[in-house]
Amino acid sequence: MTYRRDTGPSAAPDGGTAGARSGRAWDSALSAEEFAAIKGVGFEPVGQVLGTAVFDIGYTGLWGCPGSWSVTDGRKVPSSAWSASLSPLLRTLYAARRAVVARAVAECRALGGDGVVGLRLRVDGVSEVGLEFTALGTAVRARSRIRPRLPFTAHLGGQDFAKLVLAGWVPTAITFGIAVEARHDDWRTSRRTSWTAGNQEVDGYTHLLDHVRHSARNQLALEAAKHGGDGVVVDEVELQVREIECPTFGYARDFTAEAVFTGTTLARYGRSERSSGRRPLTIMRLERER
């Protein structure tokens, strides 16, 4: 993360918030404990920010039947042609999340904030229109003349944000890893799920879920690297499995699995050869003087 020196009238070394300086009361999505933790590491809330967007997710790009998976390095994986056919859906899922985060960041910049903490993302159905994506968080501003060039975003709550800052880490951006895979429900899986099969592993479904999670994790790591982070802390892992009618064989079923990893990319700052131990406590006498 790069920083710039703020010498304009909005710089407030005295610690006042942007809302207080403008005579406007600020609002936030912080609890009292989160507010105290953020203040304790030199940040002030400047306002609640929200980004929303409604997307139609009707077109997935699917064509034909995914068929049985091939075996590569001892693992069953989908064909590259089938994976490529899902790219329109993947692009939409990424675009929707990035759009609402960008809108929340735009509100943060308008408030004079340096970043957004506690950013929560939700996806809700809107009747038959599509899906509503929302990003809600609290914009904060550092009590310093050194400002980040771009506002950071983080899912971290106030206490976690404060702990990371004290430990020498700063968030750079909220990050996503998304993957969608599909598998035809062939005779091998059907035989293992029949009422006479008994209790046993259905390896076809195991391979599907394992592969989609693995792909989403890889995408998360790539996205984190793009944001210049040293690592990423994961907030949430979502997995949805849907059953659809096979487009080629109407009497058969296909299964699609969608995995979404959401986390915050972290970067190390203030590297020093000095010990990272706690500072010594100040001890004061409390008894009355005689």
Rank of each mutant, 00 (worst) to 15 (best):
M1H: 08
R4M: 10
R4T: 09
D6W: 08
G8Y: 01
G8F: 05
P9Q: 06
A11L: 00
P13H: 05
T17V: 07
A20D: 15
A20R: 14
G23W: 10
R24K: 15
A25C: 14
A25D: 15
A25R: 15
S31E: 11
S31G: 15
S31N: 11
S31L: 06
A32K: 12
E34R: 01
F35W: 04
A36W: 00
A36M: 08
A36G: 11
A37C: 04
G42C: 08
G42V: 03
E44N: 14
P45R: 09
P45V: 11
P45A: 11
P45Y: 03
G51N: 09
G51W: 00
T52I: 10
V54K: 10
F55I: 11
D56A: 08
I57N: 15
T60F: 04
G61E: 03
G61A: 11
G61F: 04
L62R: 14
G64K: 02
G64F: 08
S68P: 08
S68V: 05
V71I: 12
G74R: 12
A84E: 09
L86G: 02
P88R: 08
Y94R: 13
R98M: 08
V100W: 00
R103V: 04
A104V: 01
A110R: 13
G112P: 06
D114Q: 00
D114E: 06
V116D: 05
V116M: 03
V117S: 01
V117P: 02
G118L: 07
L121M: 15
G125S: 05
S127E: 14
L131E: 08
T134H: 04
A135W: 02
L136P: 01
A139H: 05
A139W: 01
A139C: 08
A139T: 11
S144T: 04
R145H: 05
I146W: 11
R147K: 12
H155S: 13
L156P: 01
G157E: 06
G157D: 15
G158P: 02
G158S: 07
K163Q: 09
A167I: 01
G168W: 00
G168V: 02
G168M: 05
W169I: 02
W169M: 04
T172P: 01
F176E: 14
G177Y: 01
I178F: 03
A179Y: 05
V180C: 13
A182M: 13
R183D: 10
D185E: 15
D186V: 03
D186L: 02
R188C: 06
R188K: 12
T189I: 06
R191A: 13
S194R: 10
G204V: 14
Y205I: 06
T206P: 00
H207C: 07
D210G: 10
H214Y: 13
S215L: 13
S215P: 03
A216I: 01
A216K: 01
A216D: 05
A216P: 07
R217F: 14
A221S: 11
E223W: 01
A225D: 07
A225P: 00
V232N: 04
V234G: 09
D235R: 14
Q240S: 10
F249D: 06
G250E: 10
G250F: 05
Y251Q: 13
Y251K: 12
F255C: 12
T256D: 10
A257L: 12
T262Y: 00
T265H: 01
L266A: 12
L266S: 03
R271H: 01
R271A: 12
S272P: 08
S275D: 14
L281Y: 02
T282S: 09
I283T: 13
E287T: 12
E287M: 07
R288Y: 11
R290A: 09
R290Q: 05
